[in-house]
């Protein structure tokens, strides 16, 4: 018998089947708790959906709907329209959420439509930089040279050949009233950013870099550490954008070299101990340096 009783205080209940140490589930719980119980969620297909809603059970304590991989944004638009007719749109938060596959790739067009309509919806992307749920294939958010199951490095391949899409900037270009990026390395920052976002009326985009334990090939207890390192190397800028201005989370001290981050992942293992890898790391360092300069992270 356990001495202390779990108050089961969060809006996502335990008993879900996410991997031990999952950065996405941790982040999703923080997001929803920050939104509060008067929230309706439209969720994309993906880990977050399958691990929390095995019929006939659900981890979610707020109204929650899953339709398809690519459409949580349009489903959220429909929810908002219905709430408007019911006169409830001012008191209920509409939250659309999905992973990077849904957000960067297959659902991209529908997100653009939602933003264009200037609807008062918070869209949260849990960016694991890979199609986690289907077994770690490359997405539009996969970083350069990453080893995924569809970008295996070999004699004629260094892994993913492309630099990831910058959804944050795309959101800004759409005129979203609040755009932010953070990582699962900063739980308090996730909560603050959600709360900040909800003070704005209009389209809002929050992207959270969330560690995928098996997809990245890191140890179970490393989600937070990896989130911090992604920021401290400049690989993943942490910022907010609102009222036409960037508000950046500065890197404490001197930025770390990218290998400090890369060497911890199995997905970048092929970059170490060979000449080609050295060149590749240089290129990744270059990307990080550009981020540091562009977002003024130092």
């Amino acid at each position: 018998m356990q001495k202390y009783k779990n108050p089961n205080q969060h809006l996502i209940a335990p008993g879900h089947t996410a991997c031990p140490g999952c950065g996405q589930l941790m982040s999703a719980r923080l997001v929803l708790d920050a939104c509060g119980s008067k929230t309706i969620i439209a969720n994309a297909t993906g880990c977050l959906e399958v691990t929390t809603t095995k019929y006939p059970t659900s981890s979610w304590k707020v109204p929650w709907v899953h339709s398809l991989f690519e459409n949580p944004s349009a489903v959220a638009s429909g929810i908002l329209a219905a709430l408007k007719q019911k006169g409830l749109d001012k008191e209920i938060t509409v939250l659309a959420q999905g992973g990077d596959g849904s957000t960067f790739d297959i659902g991209f067009g529908l997100i653009s439509g939602m933003w264009e309509r200037k609807e008062n919806i918070l869209y949260v992307c849990y960016n694991t930089e890979v199609y986690s749920n289907t077994g770690y294939q490359a997405s539009g958010a996969t970083p350069l040279d990453a080893n995924t199951t569809t970008t295996p490095p070999d004699k004629k391949s260094m892994g993913n050949a492309f630099i990831r899409k910058n959804m944050g900037e795309i959101a800004i270009a759409h005129g979203c009233v609040y755009v932010a990026q953070t990582t699962c390395g900063y739980p308090a920052d996730i909560i603050n950013k959600v709360k900040k976002a909800l003070t704005f009326t209009g389209p809002k985009y929050l992207e959270i870099l969330t560690t995928c334990i098996p997809g990245w090939g890191v140890e179970n207890e490393m989600a937070v550490q990896m989130g911090k390192l992604a920021h401290k190397t400049g690989i993943y800028p942490v910022f907010e954008y609102y009222d036409d201005e960037y508000h950046v989370m500065k890197i404490p001290g001197e930025p770390l070299k990218v290998d400090e981050y890369l060497k911890l992942h199995k997905r970048f293992k092929h970059l170490f101990g060979n000449e080609r890898g050295k060149e590749a790391i240089k290129q990744i360092q270059n990307i990080a340096d550009k981020n540091i300069e562009k977002y003024n992270l130092k």
Binding site: G15, H16, T17, T52, K54, P56, T57, S58
Partner: peptide, 18 residues
């Protein structure tokens, strides 16, 4: 029914994974 009750995964004790 296609509606599922909230917070009901608590029947799935995942402690056994440990």
């Amino acid at each position: 029914p296609l509606e599922v009750n909230p917070g009901t995964t608590i029947t799935n004790k995942t402690g056994g994974w440990r």
